[in-house]
Lab assay of single mutants.
Amino acid sequence: PREAYIVTIEKGKPGQTVTWYQLRADHPKPDSLISEHPTAQEAMDAKKRYED
């Protein structure tokens, strides 16, 4: 089974940042970016789909 994890990042100019959620996995390479999402819920949904 595949495993993934969610990383929170800040995008934008200082003082005007927006939080994004990255879905990452250690396949095919360590810390590979799988997808980016504007909400934590979307990231969790993507994580479930990826791991299923």
Rank of each mutant, 00 (worst) to 15 (best):
P1W: 11
Q22D: 01
I6F: 02
K29F: 13
K11Y: 12
I9D: 02
Q22N: 01
R49V: 12
A40H: 15
M44V: 11
M44A: 13
H37Y: 08
T19W: 06
E10H: 12
E36K: 02
K47A: 04
H27K: 10
K48V: 11
I34S: 00
E36D: 04
S35A: 02
K47R: 07
D52H: 13
Y5H: 06
I9F: 07
P38Y: 08
H37C: 01
A43Q: 00
D31Q: 11
E42F: 03
P38F: 07
E51Y: 08
S32T: 15
R2T: 10
D52Q: 15
D52R: 11
D26A: 09
Y5M: 04
E36M: 05
H27C: 07
H37L: 02
Y50Q: 02
A25S: 15
S32Q: 09
A43L: 01
Q16Y: 14
Q41V: 10
E51S: 08
I9G: 02
I9S: 05
Q41R: 10
K47P: 00
R2Y: 14
Q16A: 10
S32A: 08
S35T: 03
G15F: 07
T8R: 13
M44C: 06
G12P: 03
K11S: 06
P30K: 13
A46S: 05
V7G: 03
A4C: 11
V7A: 06
K48F: 09
K13I: 14
R2A: 10
P14G: 09
W20T: 06
P28W: 06
D31M: 11
A40G: 06
V7Y: 06
D52K: 12
P28E: 08
G12T: 07
D52V: 12
I6H: 00
R24D: 01
E10R: 08
Q22T: 04
D26Y: 08
K48S: 09
P14M: 08
I34P: 00
P38E: 12
I34R: 01
L23A: 01
S32R: 14
D31N: 15
T39L: 04
Q22G: 02
P28D: 09
K48N: 09
Y21H: 04
V18E: 14
G12N: 05
D26V: 09
W20D: 01
T39P: 00
D31S: 13
K13V: 14
Q22E: 11
L23I: 07
V7S: 06
Y50E: 03
T39Y: 04
G15I: 03
M44P: 00
E3P: 09
L23G: 01
L33D: 01
A43R: 00
R2H: 14
D31H: 13
A4K: 01
H27E: 12
H37W: 15
Y5W: 15
M44S: 08
P28L: 13
E3Q: 14
I34N: 01
R24G: 01
S32P: 02
A4H: 04
K11N: 03
W20E: 03
M44G: 06
P38L: 13
S35F: 01
T39D: 06
K11A: 06
S35P: 00
A43E: 00
W20R: 05
P1T: 13
S32G: 06
T17N: 07
E36S: 05
I34F: 02
Y5F: 10
L33S: 02
K13H: 14
I6W: 02
Y50D: 02
E3F: 15
P30Q: 09
T17L: 14
Q22I: 04
T19R: 08
Q41S: 11
W20Q: 04
D45K: 09
T8K: 15
A43C: 04
H37N: 00
V7T: 12
I34Q: 04
A46Y: 04
H27Q: 14
D26K: 13
P1I: 15
P28H: 10
A25L: 06
P30H: 10
R49G: 06
I34V: 09
E42R: 05
Q22H: 04
K13Y: 13
Q22A: 04
T17M: 14
D31I: 03
V7Q: 07
M44W: 15
R49M: 12
I9N: 03
Y50C: 02
D31V: 05
G15R: 03
E42Q: 10
R24K: 15
T17Q: 12
L23V: 14
A43W: 00
K48I: 13
P14H: 09
E10G: 05
K47Q: 07
I6K: 00
V18R: 13
A43S: 03
V18P: 02
Y21C: 01
A4S: 09
Y5V: 06
L33K: 03
E36A: 03
G15E: 06
K11E: 04
T17P: 07
R49Y: 12
K29L: 13
E51A: 05
E42P: 01
P14N: 10
Q16M: 13
A43K: 00
P28N: 07
I6V: 09
E42C: 03
E10M: 09
H37P: 00
A25V: 15
W20A: 05
V18I: 12
P30C: 06
P30G: 10
Y5N: 04
P30L: 11
D52N: 14
M44R: 09
T17F: 10
T8C: 08
E10F: 10
L23S: 00
A40Q: 15
I9H: 05
A25K: 08
E42I: 05
E36C: 05
Q22W: 02
R2K: 12
R2V: 12
L33I: 13
T19Y: 08
K47M: 11
Y21W: 13
Q41F: 08
A46T: 02
T39R: 04
H37A: 01
I34W: 03
A43D: 00
T17C: 06
K29Q: 12
E3I: 13
L23H: 00
D26W: 08
T17S: 11
Y50S: 02
E3H: 15
A40S: 08
E3G: 15
G15V: 03
T19C: 04
P30D: 07
Q22K: 00
A25F: 04
R24A: 02
H27N: 11
S32W: 11
Y5C: 03
K11H: 07
L23P: 00
A40I: 15
P1D: 11
D45N: 11
I6L: 05
D26N: 15
K13W: 14
A46F: 04
A25D: 04
L33Y: 06
R24N: 02
R2E: 07
T19M: 10
K29C: 09
W20L: 08
H27A: 07
R49T: 09
I6Y: 02
S35I: 01
H37R: 00
Q16F: 15
G12D: 04
R2D: 07
D26G: 12
Y5A: 02
R2W: 14
G12M: 05
K47F: 05
D31Y: 15
Q22Y: 03
E42L: 09
K48W: 09
K29H: 14
K29S: 13
L23F: 02
Y50N: 02
P1L: 14
G15K: 06
L33N: 02
E51I: 09
P14V: 10
T19I: 15
E42W: 02
P30M: 10
P14D: 13
K48Y: 09
A25Q: 05
Y21S: 01
I9Q: 04
A40L: 15
R49S: 10
I9T: 07
A4Q: 02
I6C: 02
E10K: 11
Y5K: 07
R2S: 09
I9K: 05
K11G: 05
K29G: 10
I6Q: 00
T17K: 12
